[in-house]
């Protein structure tokens, strides 16, 4: 989980075109207006980047404000998607 969060922070700093530095990224800051200020385009990009880099696909029920409240909540959703994918793969 913490590992997922670290990877996610790097993803935002390195891949997302938002000029955010890794040290400035607060995992508990809101992703939208008041926090990391991701705009509408960046949210879509973050979804696509996360899916590609973690090898998952979000369900539409996961694309909501709670899951995308901040990077910590997003990391939790990604981690659970990955473990579900793994257990589905081994069964």
């Amino acid at each position: 989980m913490d590992n997922t969060l670290e990877r996610l922070k790097h993803l935002v700093a390195d891949k997302l075109d938002m000029n955010l530095k890794i040290d400035d990224i607060d995992p508990d800051a809101p992703l939208l207006e008041e926090g990391l200020k991701l705009d509408s385009l960046a949210i879509v990009e973050l979804i696509t980047l996360s899916e590609e880099s973690f090898g998952i696909e979000f369900g539409e029920d996961q694309l909501n404000m709670n899951a995308f409240a901040n990077l910590r909540s997003l990391a939790a959703v990604i981690a659970s998607s990955r473990s579900q994918a793994r257990s589905a793969g081994t069964s």
Binding site: L32, D39, S40, I43, I47, E60, L63, N64, M65
Partner: peptide
């Protein structure tokens, strides 16, 4: 107001629009 993907999906589910005026973005 200032829509994004997450907001739109949420509102769409609740409002069930039949008409929408949007942009290519």
């Amino acid at each position: 107001e200032r829509t994004n993907l997450l907001k739109y999906l949420d509102r769409e589910k609740r409002f069930q629009p039949t008409i929408v005026f949007a942009t290519p973005a």
